[in-house]
Design a protein around this nucleic acid. Structure first.
Ligand code: SF4
Ligand code: SF4
Lengths: 134, 134
DNA sequence: TTAATCAAGACTAAATTAGTCTTATTTGGG
DNA sequence: CCCAAATAAGACTAATTTAGTCTTGATTAA
């Protein structure tokens, strides 16, 4: 399957929301309610975005999150890394697992062209930023 | 996750094998053994390829499969349709499920840009054929 | 007749993704 | 000082998808 995870969609919608808020503080609850995104799931996505310096957070009452990067500085390749952990068209090309688990390993006859394809799709993800979604 | 299914990889390897056999009859067993692909899984993939007129089959002893289409006539977008059923970057864009199940539906704020992206990735898959893997 | 092969579909297992629960910690304001 | 509203972190469960297996049957060359 070649599909965006729900988490990625939620992240994109959240980041669009932040972009439209123009630097203002927004709470997870607000985004969750406004876009009908499960609160706890969204909360964890925002925490990841904070960990990767896309957002900053303010704790306590009146707390929330704020954009740290500009929308056009957040590309989807980076975002997938933050949210889904990795982006690899094949098992052997993800960073955790360099040819490790694939049962075919040496016998694989399509590795080269598939690697080329992986680069082309990566390029699409690298060329898109959050500002393309606003 | 944005990843080729194992079935797609197996299909590509099998079709490469057929392409190199230049029209000759090849059995599922031969491909399975040579490339270390689970036999029954491969068998079902070949059956699907037959159903979509990519291969023809000959039954009985001395039977097997043969390429019906030329390698450069089999593109990956078509192949994904045959093997995985569909190719859609988002739930709302697959043919079975036009916006049906997605819990966000009307609330979705990223549908347009995501549709554009879907087309771009589709185009990559449409531009690649089995002959690119031989 | 037999062995090799395709045909079809049910079934199980493994992996991934989505979503929930629980237990902190921080902090502004009454 | 205490409470309510937030973030923080991680374990846990459920749902879905993908991968792989099993079973039974039909075809056909030798
Ligand atoms: S089959 Fe080939 S391309 Fe796919 S994961 Fe294994 S080595 Fe990589
Ligand atoms: S969230 Fe938007 S893009 Fe994703 S499936 Fe639902 S409607 Fe489609």
């Amino acid at each position: 399957m070649v599909r965006l995870s729900k988490k990625m969609e939620y992240a994109l919608m959240a980041l669009k929301h932040f972009a439209l808020a123009e630097g203002g503080i927004v709470t997870a609850k607000e985004i969750s309610e406004k876009h009908n995104i499960p609160y706890e799931l969204l909360a964890k996505i925002l925490q990841k975005l904070k960990k990767d310096k896309v957002l900053s957070s303010i704790q306590g009452t009146k707390g929330g999150y704020q954009l740290l990067k500009k929308p056009d500085e957040i590309d989807l390749f980076f975002l997938m890394h933050t949210i889904d952990g990795d982006m690899a068209l094949t098992e052997c090309q993800c960073s955790h697992n360099e040819n490790g688990k694939c049962t075919l390993k040496e016998l694989c006859t399509i590795k080269q062209p598939v690697t080329k394809m992986q680069k082309e799709i990566e390029d699409i993800f690298k060329s898109k930023t959050v500002s393309d979604f606003v």
